[in-house]
Design a binder for these strands. Structure first.
Length: 833
RNA sequence: GCCGGGAUGGCGGAAUGGUAGACGCUCGGGACUUAAAAUCCUGCGAACGCAAGUUCGUGCGGGUUCAAAUCCCGCUCUCGGCACCA
């Protein structure tokens, strides 16, 4: 009977499901392991990226299960979002119908791939049972003061017809989903105070060093953008106005030669008024022109800085000197205070600006080993640390100390204080879209903004909607839905028609998995306490500053709300960011027409082959080059394993299941086979557990298979050795190719499931070698290799090598200068002549 | 500009101071077959050589070492992230 995956795979999928071997319960007596993949958006069908993500996850889940851990391995769908609305318009159906049919289809696909999920725990964020808890959590956040409504300039995508969070504006100001340039709009929107947690979000990155990729930590650190500095005030001469400024380089305060405001700064209008006349018109015109520029225009490389002199002067709080007050386009209103002290000698941007407008440049920091540069002739700003000069009481101090002393001065004189600034902005969660969680708020003419009482949740999304053809939110066109009664006064009120950013849903779904059946809370506290945190998370790098920041933030808040234990501050202990799947040099995508359909591959080669290829072709973090030939290679390998067992089946079944010790084996080939078996087991275990090097683990298993094919047992002992080797191979291969290994395991007469069988133990005594190959080097160049008994000391090895005729011959007529012997490895003889 | 990753055969990739190229793919030779597919055996970094073998070889230039893909110094190219963030 040949290897027929089309029979074997469905058969074992059914057996596993019937026996419920992948269903788990919290059990504090057992050590748990929570293995999680970033859940998919139900776009219609699985793509290769999904297959790669989940093949890695299933490998971990199966491996750890076999290692005896109580493994939580769930799957669900991130099923709210724009594409459902677009598809609904295109196919003239409802977003919910489209979404649910995709969920069912993709679930079937995942089952055909043989992943070992506990399917009872499937979570769909678009189901009322889930999103009602989004609403409930939103209200808890609201009570805690973490939710606020603000009229502010926000990012607007015209194509998606909705606002976006800062994190969703990428690549110089375009929408993360559709690539449309983002514009600014002034709107009333709901924000979440993620900035309250900015400091902790940075601090905890250190705890994640062990298990997270360095680059993700760096990206988050950059995104949160913590900087320490001094916040201080400056008077505007001859007015009552004061300017608030922030700087990280307070040590350069003596080098201030101008002060600049952002065009949107509230003082701009006042100053224009005070200036009056022609100057007023000029200032207002300038501010208007700057405000109308898009993010792209403002941040394009090489754009000249622009500014206008207000004619006013700011007073330096230390020196009392007056510096001209400018309005400049490179000052951002939404960072710091929207005003800066200009120190052109030591800041490149200020330098560019000063040169353009002939503002004086004064150096106040000199290099450690030389004199200060001349401000009039220097080519660029000297931003590096050095020694303070021309700086009164700071003179002679190295930058770090000068900063400290200057900051102390400001605090002592009550003119400013130390402050920490973050780049991170609050999270805008309102979306002017239909297919999302309704924000549980109502607007009453008498009572204002009123939260929906918890006992009135859920605010259900109507499913019988017609999507407006020209875009926009159908909820806003449904008076029957949005007209309601004020929970406070009972008068007429209107529901919030915006829905929540879908990243809200995905910020706590992993908590829900721990107890998806509870109906009186988002999740069961005890279940979460047992299962959380996620031990291994797997997904794409694209979420480094989106989902992965929001989920970290949520976990801290849920912990503070008492829903998670107080010390549970981080959701994901280890993170693996898998590489992309590449074909013909580019990422697989519909628009490039280079997609390979996982279903097709599974149909043609089987799930085991597809999974094995994916895990073998590249290390998990690297991009994977899709190769049909490579898939065939994986298929060939599984065929070899199948035939190996099948062709020796009778003898293997008869063979003793007893494990013979190496010391009980006398035949050299048997001993060698035994050693290979255990060194393979040892290395594969380490590759998976410690190194996460699945490609090399597969390579070892191929080597073991090659050795087994060449192995010819001579007697009963030999067959016992072979049986042990074959079963070890099946055990190690099981997490990679679970169906074929399960089949062969049962063919050998085993009755339990290999999928949940205990991982084999390495017999350390079987790793001991009789002899080792050592290399003879002359002057560092390899000359020959030969066998010596294992365990020789340095001296004995050297003596052994030097006594060989071949060695003596090589050294004839040469003077030995030095010898180096590395036991078990090599001997290097340094000679002259 | 700043931060991070990477560069090894025809290709994907092994090797973290000690035999460079494991394992696989491609390609060549052979066996089986009427034939093909499948399968099995075998060769495969480059140069010279009938061979034994010798020399060269891990992006480039230096250095440390008996010994460097690996460590140090200085570059080049490339991929990714952030970027008037004060």
């Amino acid at each position: 009977m040949p290897y027929d995956f089309s029979v074997i795979e469905p058969k074992w999928q059914k057996e596993w499901a019937d026996a419920k071997i992948f269903e788990v319960e919290a059990d504090p007596s057992k050590e748990k392991f929570y293995c999680l993949e970033m859940f998919p958006y139900p776009s219609g069908a699985l793509h290769m990226g999904h297959l790669r993500n989940y093949s890695i996850g299933d490998l971990f889940a199966r491996f750890l299960r076999m290692q005896g851990k109580n493994v939580l391995y769930p799957m669900g769908f991130d099923s709210f979002g724009m594409p459902a609305e677009n598809a609904a318009i295109k196919h003239n159906t409802a977003p919910s119908e489209w979404t649910w049919s995709n969920i069912e289809h993709m679930t079937e696909q995942l089952k055909r791939a043989g992943y070992s999920y506990d399917w009872r725990r499937r979570v769909e964020t678009c189901s009322v049972d889930y999103y009602r808890w989004n609403q409930w959590l939103f209200l808890q956040f609201y009570k805690k003061g973490l939710v606020y409504r603000k009229h502010a300039p926000v990012n607007w995508c015209d194509k998606c017809q909705t606002v976006l969070a800062n994190e969703q504006v990428i690549d110089d100001g375009v929408c993360w989903r559709c690539g449309t340039p983002v514009t600014k709009r002034d709107l009333d929107q709901w924000f979440i105070r993620i900035t309250d947690y900015a400091q902790e979000l940075v601090d905890c990155l250190d705890e994640l060093k062990e298990g997270w990729p360095e680059r993700v930590l760096t990206m988050q650190r950059n995104w949160i953008g913590r900087s320490e500095g001094v916040h201080f005030q400056m008077d505007i001469a001859d007015t009552d106005l004061k300017i608030e400024a922030f700087t990280t380089r307070i040590d350069t305060i003596f080098g201030v030669t101008f002060v600049a405001l952002a065009a949107e700064h509230p003082h701009v209008k006042k100053l224009a008024e005070m200036a009056g006349g022609k100057k007023k018109e000029e200032i207002l015109a300038f501010a208007k022109r700057m405000a109308s520029r898009s993010t792209i225009e403002r941040t394009a490389v090489g754009v000249d800085k622009e500014g206008i002199d207000t004619g006013f002067f700011a007073v330096n709080p230390v020196t009392g000197e007056k510096s001209p007050l400018w309005i400049a386009d490179y000052i951002l209103m939404d960072y710091g205070t929207g005003a800066i002290m200009g120190v052109p000698a030591h800041d490149q941007r200020d330098f560019d600006f000063a040169r353009k407008y002939n503002i004086p440049i004064i150096t106040v920091v000199r290099p450690v080993d030389g004199p200060a540069e001349d401000g009039a002739t220097m080519a660029c700003a000297a931003a590096a640390d050095g020694i303070a000069c021309n700086s009164g009481f700071l003179d002679g101090l190295p930058t770090e100390e000068a900063i400290k002393k200057a900051a102390d001065w400001f605090e002592e004189h009550g003119k400013g204080k130390r402050e920490i600034q973050f780049r991170l902005r609050d999270w805008l969660i309102s979306r002017q879209r239909y297919w999302g969680t309704p924000i549980p708020m109502v607007y009453c003419d008498h009572c204002g903004v009123v939260p929906v009482p918890e006992d009135q949740l859920p605010v259900k999304l109507p499913l019988d909607v017609e999507m407006p053809k020209n875009g926009g939110n159908p909820l806003a066109l449904r008076p029957d839905w949005y007209n309601t009664i004020c929970p406070v006064c009972g008068g007429p009120a209107r529901r919030e028609t915006d829905t929540m950013d879908t990243f809200f849903c995905s910020s706590w779904y992993f908590d829900r998995y721990t107890s998806p059946w509870v109906s009186d809370a988002p999740f069961d506290k005890d279940a979460a306490k047992y299962w959380m945190t996620v031990d291994q998370y797997i997904g794409g790098i694209e979420h480094a500053c989106l989902h992965l920041i929001y989920a970290r933030f949520f976990t801290k808040v849920l912990s503070d709300l008492g829903l998670l234990p107080p010390d549970m501050r981080e959701p994901f202990k280890r993170l693996l960011t898998q590489g992309m799947v590449i074909k013909d040099g580019a990422k697989m995508s519909k628009s490039l027409g280079n997609v390979v359909d996982p279903d097709e591959i599974i149909k043609r080669y089987g799930a085991d082959t597809a999974r094995l290829f994916i895990l073998f072709a590249a290390p998990p973090e690297k991009d994977l080059d899709w190769s049909e030939r490579g898939v065939e290679g994986a298929s060939r390998f599984l065929g070899r394993v199948f035939r190996l067992v099948e062709q020796n089946l009778e003898n293997l079944k008869k063979a003793s299941a007893q494990r013979l010790k190496l010391s009980e084996l006398t035949d050299a080939a048997d001993r060698k086979m035994k050693r290979i078996t255990h060194s393979t087991l040892d290395r594969v275990t380490k590759d998976i557990r410690d190194e996460r090097q699945f490609n090399t683990a597969v390579a070892r298993l191929m080597e073991l298979t090659n050795a087994l094919i060449a192995f010819a047992p001579k007697d009963e002992k030999g067959w016992a050795v072979m049986r042990e080797a074959v079963e070890t191979l099946l055990c190690c291969l099981s997490p990679f190719a679970p169906h074929i290994t399960e089949e062969l395991w049962h063919m050998l007469g085993n009755e339990d499931f290999l999928s949940v069988h205990r991982w084999f133990e390495v017999d350390e005594s079987a790793l001991v070698e009789d002899s080792v190959t050592v290399v003879l080097q002359i002057n560092g160049k390899v000359r020959e290799q030969f066998e010596v008994p294992a365990g020789l000391s340095k001296e004995d090895l050297l003596a052994e090598v030097m006594s060989r005729d071949a060695t003596k011959k090589r050294l004839e007529g040469k003077e030995v200068i030095k010898t180096i012997a590395v036991p078990g490895k090599l001997v290097n003889i340094v000679v002259k002549g």
